[in-house]
Design a binder for these strands. Structure first.
Lengths: 246, 246
DNA sequence: CACGTTAGATGCGACATGCATATATGCATA
DNA sequence: TATGCATATATGCATGTCGCATCTAACGTG
């Protein structure tokens, strides 16, 4: 017992005199999985690598965290600078820290995921790739991706795992949070919302119970407008209202 | 468009030639919120600080991540070295990275939470403190803690927020994962399990529907034994069986 | 052996959900 | 103008889950 106390005190003293520049330590980066739903599939933004490491593989938008920058701020900066995206839903996902995940050096990567309405344009050299989520994707396993040319894409680092975990996370969240709206423009029909849910979950939803669930969730508000020129009865347009307003 | 491409290429070149020792970067630490349920309240392990910073405040067990050590391994090492705990449930919680969370230097802290059966002993100088979770605790806000002497405890750093988020996380997980078993010894009664759930959630559960939910979840297996010497009809003892075994 | 106490089982109503069916509304076409 | 088509929206009903009340079972105590 006394031993353990001394040990703890030694550690305290070490900490008090700890000079971070005298010790090796990891670099901290942020990677962002940008997800959107289009044509019945999830898509993400990837960047082709050009250097010798993971040459011609594709990576998530990412970068190092500034010394006076919070993790959230770093993620928002990357979204803005690399993709021209501002004001989107952004949440921390998981921190990946395997010692060998970057063969050049020790990098601890704080992964974020962002949800973007697919009608928003994307600036920069990023490519929008379709995700192929195996059913184990629900368990957070790696995903595959198909580029705009239809060819499968090779991932750099552990980014296939990051995307798999992001898909798992939003699948779980869909059940108890209004996260699905983040993938739609401001006004949308119930059919649109259902398609987004089905795209994310990878399985069909019952139409009627989906309607009822959404309408009595108190998260939808009719805009009073309807679809135009659709060749059949137009659906009502809704918008998302956040719970705090109720 | 060409501009953005050049910018991205420049960043790539920077990365290829990046020497981590030439740049400032944060230190990476791991903090562990050890949770157990006892006497109808959640408890955690805290260590009294002795240095000049946050003197006499209490901190979660934590430490820096070794250069060749994964984040999970660092958390397990801390549990073992600081509290003598091995083989417990441990999962990553969230990464806290506000630039000013440690006034001495920039520290990015990867927080973990561990769930421990309260009958397990604890080695080392840690103190077991009772958590007082305000109802906003469900939203991940900060918690308060009461030490063994009954006095309220002051937290160092942002550790009140870490604990608040840990409580929020297990409250959410309780609904769809067998996480509650982690807080109980190997064999337990349904009443024990219900009390753990009520302690974690902070509200009472319906006895019968709780029974039915647990029994038909396929996660419980009767041991064939019963309570002894309880002054009333003895309850059956169950053990946890993981889903993969079914 | 009666009694108190808690465990465990059964029955019923409220409510969500899945499914089938009926009605409404817009456009296209005869 | 009238009719048909496609989809949206509403309604009715069977099923399953959940909360609640009630009943029976098993143990210790006096």
């Amino acid at each position: 017992m006394a031993k353990t106390t001394r040990k703890a005190r030694l550690e305290e003293e070490f900490l008090q005199g700890y000079d971070p520049n005298r010790y090796e330590r990891p670099s901290v980066s942020v990677d962002v999985a940008v997800l959107s739903a289009r044509d019945g599939a999830l898509h993400t933004v990837l960047y082709r690598r050009e250097g010798p490491l993971f040459a011609d593989a594709f990576a998530l938008p990412g970068g190092f965290v500034g010394m006076n920058e919070s993790l959230d701020a770093a993620a928002r900066r990357l979204l803005r600078d690399k993709g021209g995206l501002e004001g989107v839903f952004l949440e921390q996902l998981y921190t990946f820290g395997a010692p060998d995940r970057d063969p050049r050096m020790r990098v601890v990567s704080v992964a974020y995921y962002a949800l973007v309405d697919h009608t928003r344009g994307l600036a920069g050299p990023g490519q929008i790739c379709r995700l192929v989520v195996p059913w184990e994707g629900e368990t957070g396993g790696p995903v595959e991706a198909v580029g705009p040319d239809g060819d499968e894409v090779e991932f750099a680092f552990d980014h296939a795992d990051v995307l798999g975990l992001a898909v798992k996370r939003i699948r779980g969240k869909l059940g108890y949070t209004p996260i699905g709206f983040q993938l739609l423009p401001e006004s949308f029909t119930l059919r649109d919302l259902q398609e987004v849910h089905e795209t994310v979950l990878g399985r069909e939803q019952n139409k009627d119970s989906f309607r009822r669930r959404m309408l009595q969730s108190g998260q939808l508000e009719a805009t009073g407008e309807r679809q135009l020129g659709v060749g059949h009865r137009p659906a009502e347009l809704y918008r998302f209202v956040r719970r705090s307003a109720i």
